[in-house]
Structures are given as C-alpha cells and as structure tokens.
Design a binder for these strands. Structure first.
Lengths: 173, 173
DNA sequence: TATTGTTATACTCTATAACTATA
DNA sequence: TATAGTTATAGAGTATAACAATA
C-alpha cells in the first residue's frame, strides 16, 4: 500500500495506488444500494450464463411467468406489477411475440386492451426455462438456511413494497 | 376472480383474467432472484429520481467513489471490482471524462495503463452527490433496525462473494 | 378527459470481437 | 503470450414525448 495524501486537484506520484494494489470500497461499504446492486449483478450474470441457450432475460422470464399465471392480462397490468414503463413493456412483448412465445388478442371487454397469452411454444419454452432457473436459483439459495432465506426475502419485499419511491417521485406528467 | 381452466393452447373466454383483476405473482413468489430484482429496481428508480439533476447513474457514482478512494487505479481494476466488462468500463469512463468529472493520465509504472483521477469538478460533483444519496439511502434504511440492516447487507454480500458465478461460467475465451 | 396501445427517439448498460501498444 | 486500452457493433432495458383509438 501507498500512503495517500489526497487533496482535491493535487496528486503527486506518491498519492496514487500502485498496479496490484487491491481496490478499497471505502465509503461504498456502508451503502445499502451498492450491496444490493452488486448482488443483483451477480444474480443477473449467473442467470444470463444459465439461460444463454434459451436466450430469455430475467424480465422476459418474469413476464412469461406472469402471463402464464394471469392469461389475458394486458401490457399495462404487467408493467404496473413489475414497476415498468408502458413503452418498455411494449418493446419487451414485441420481442416475445417476434419469437412466437406470446400472442396478442384484442380484448372482448375493452377495445383499448390486448389480451396477452402464451403460445404453445411459449409454454414449452417456459417449462424448459423453469428447470434451468431452478438450478440457477439453487446455486444461491443453498448459501442460506430456510429461515435465513425467509428473512432475506421479507427484507427485499420491504424495499420494493415501501412507499419510498412514491414519496420521492414528482408524480410525473 | 375468474376460474382458470388453463390447458396449453386452449383458452376460452372464461379462462382469462378480467380487466381489474389483480395480477398474481404465482410461481415467482418463491424465486429469490425475482425479489432481488424487484428490490433493485425500486432502489434504482428512487436513485434516478433523486439524482436527476446531477445525472449520475448508480454505476457512475460507484466508479467515482472508487476513484476517489483509489486514485490512480486503472479501468481494469475498477471493472474487476464491480464485475464489469473492460469495454463497458471504457464507455462509462468516457462519459465521465466527457463531463470533466474524471481524468486519464498515462501510468508511469505501466505503459499499457491509464491512471484514473477525479478532476476538481468531479470532486465537487461527488460531494454534492453524496448528500443527495444519503437522503435516498435513508428512505430505505429507515425501514430496518440497525441489526436488520447488518444482517441484510451480510446476506447480499454472501450472494456476490459466492463462487456461484464462477462455478457456472464457462470461463470465457 | 383519461386510458391503452403504439411509434419514435435517445441514453445507458451489457457483452463480444478485433485491433494496437506494451509487458 | 498475456495484458490494458481502444473501437466497433449489437441487443436489452429504461424513459419521454406524441399520436390514435377507445372508454
């Protein structure tokens, strides 16, 4: 390690780390959002590697599970459930439709809506995905006891069910 | 609610959800990765809203904190620390450099490397960001006791420090 | 007027591949 | 040969704005 006598704008040769020095996380160590993001990235990377053959992303898989569980639901419904934008969901569904995983049908109840349904192919892909994802999940859940996992998930839910976002958002237009 | 008698490929009018029906998460309820992603999205959205004026992303902020803590470190060092790709880090640093937050200097120790440093402006922006982010963090951390928070962070670290990714990855080329 | 879908646009993150310079 | 940076390219998520059709 090298002594760091850092003052803004004045770095001398002795003030910088040397090649090979370990990176110190410093202030980030106490930042919940940082650890959450790192964990999310780790999960994402393992998911992507596991699903590389099928080629579904986490969001796409979640959407297909939701459509399977709630056939006939609309893009707006799913977007709201996943905290996504309308236009983002539109693009996501387009990709799933292009691959013949998902079908749009005009809603008989509301002319503005489209019912979303899985195709036969979509059901088959979802079934195959579930197996791969079960193994992927296990690689992480095995790091915890059942009780820890329950606590962990309750903490995560506390984050995304909180009203922090609404309190902070400006309501949009 | 509507009875669902779902069989693959055969949906009748009574097999679908009605407009207004709540979306059920179904199988996703037991998927750790789903809850982790939802929490991460909630954090991300609050972060973005809070930082809209400054316009730093979570990753950009983390990189600036790491450079502040480890002046002179290289893109490769930071990329490895944050589980990012070389090219991704390159693009990220380019953006920070274009905004005059970060400076690249040829390393005196290794001709292949560039030392990364914050500019004076970068230090000022980082200081302002820290205050905003402290408020953002509090909106979530106040949902937990100190002890819960400690447990929560230890769980998240267990995820991203695990060897699950390496075990699953194909080693790349 | 409000809602849903749609289209267009733009930025960021992510990753791969290939190239250059250096070790 | 391996490493660090660089460039080009591409796909995905994210968001905003604007428009059409419908409620």
């Amino acid at each position: 390690m090298v002594a760091k006598r850092i003052q803004e704008g004045s770095y001398g040769p002795d003030d910088v780390v040397m090649p090979g020095d370990p990176i110190e996380t410093g202030r980030l160590e106490g930042v919940l959002g940082f650890h959450l993001r790192m964990a999310s990235v780790a999960f994402y990377q393992d998911f992507s590697a596991a699903m590389s053959e099928i080629g579904l992303t986490q969001k796409q898989f979640a959407v297909m599970e939701l459509i399977a569980q709630n056939p006939g639901s609309s893009q707006i419904d799913l977007a709201a459930e996943l905290s996504m934008d309308r236009a983002t969901m539109m693009a996501l569904i387009n990709r799933l439709q292009d691959r013949n995983f998902v079908e749009r049908r005009p809603s008989p109840f509301d002319g503005r809506r489209q019912q979303l349904l899985l195709t036969d192919h979509g059901h088959a892909v979802l079934a195959a995905s579930r197996e791969i994802i079960a193994a992927h999940e296990t690689r992480f859940t095995e790091l915890f006891t059942d009780r820890e996992l329950e606590t962990f998930i309750s903490f995560l839910k506390r984050i995304y069910n909180s009203s922090a976002i609404k309190r902070n958002s400006l309501g949009s237009s």
